[in-house]
Design a protein around this nucleic acid. Sequence first.
DNA 1: TAGTGGTCTAGACCACCCC
DNA 2: GGGTGGTCTAGACCACTAA
Lengths: 230, 230
Amino acid sequence: MIRTGYQDVKTHILSQIRANIWAPGSTLPNEVDLAATLGCARATISRAMRELVDEGILERKRKAGTKVKTNPTRRAQFAIPIIREEIEKTGAPYRYDLVERRILAAPDWLRSRLDLPSKTQVLHIRCMHYAAQNPYQFEDRWINLDAVPQAETFDFKSLGPNEWLVKEVPFTDGNLEFSASNATSEIAAFLQVPENTAVFTSERTTWLNNQNVTYARLYFTRDYKMTTQL
Amino acid sequence: MIRTGYQDVKTHILSQIRANIWAPGSTLPNEVDLAATLGCARATISRAMRELVDEGILERKRKAGTKVKTNPTRRAQFAIPIIREEIEKTGAPYRYDLVERRILAAPDWLRSRLDLPSKTQVLHIRCMHYAAQNPYQFEDRWINLDAVPQAETFDFKSLGPNEWLVKEVPFTDGNLEFSASNATSEIAAFLQVPENTAVFTSERTTWLNNQNVTYARLYFTRDYKMTTQL
DNA sequence: TAGTGGTCTAGACCACCCC
DNA sequence: GGGTGGTCTAGACCACTAA
């Protein structure tokens, strides 16, 4: 006699759904009944169902019961990587090059975007990331010196702001946007592609307790890939 | 006396980390000790830690203990939407237009990409999605008729393949790629943008138990946005 | 092989909220 | 009001793996 674990319960529920026995929108048996049916404790059923909710397969409401989602929310997720590690994982040597580093008062467009007080000092960094000899990413980053004062004394000559920030500054919220843009002559030169080439662009903003930490625009020479399962 | 719940435990652990008491890379107390310290059951600690692992904050290994991740893996996630719902959520009326629908033997590039047997019949659909009068997305989709035979008799004249598939065909795995491409004259015409404009492109492939179901290339007139928390 | 996390159980009480 | 999920507990045994 093998014990029924929460993984078994998940598998069972999923197979019932795929076999259309528990159709989208229908209500599953309650936890107590299912536990009796499958021969395990209620907590085991509970954990299985909780994870399936987390995976976007089920919906639960007290008193109303557990239902199969009609439009299962499939979630693609991916890690925000450290560029160096991402490149080295491909086997290519990583190279970093600081293009510009200067401190200035936040320009208006940045202030309004990040909701910064006027006269906020920011650190503006522009740099390149290479995989072997090939351009990989151009990074255009703004760091709020009110939130990260220690950035003022760091020179970023050999360590990129991406990696430094990940290790140095915790954050509580983040926002990520993907877009496509035509390369300006400057970006094209950095990435060594023809002007006007479509460039994959990612914009990231991060906050620590409602205070903006940093805003970055990243121009890639290659695509983003992500995988979702189940 | 308030009971210590797993949420309290999570909060406590996070605050210890943010206060640098449990620094990145350091080892946390084991579950039994922490339970004694915080005055709750071991299972409560366990659940809190499990969720923090899931959120990319902690790393756990048997015998080695629980450590604070040096490079916290922040995960962005987003739902794969039904286009109609996505558009209607913005308040704009949704319009769908079928451009082309034909059945043919899978071309070689598709066969190799999806690992289809030779002579597999596929349904090729090209269609447009509009938000009010504005082009929103051009969809270029291939459906494996071996996996989804019922698509052969559906005309897709008033319902798009995206929505039909989500409701009709379950899948077990999916793959998603984002990229930027320069609009060909044809794509440009559909999206009503100048030729060569950078277009945000998403490619999706889905499988049901190791058999490919569909492959789609989606050309957007606008960007993708996603948000990550914690 | 010993220590740590991983999981299960049986029971309990609580919180929510549909009917 | 009553049924459902949400959570906690105390204890137990198992599985992995670092030392």
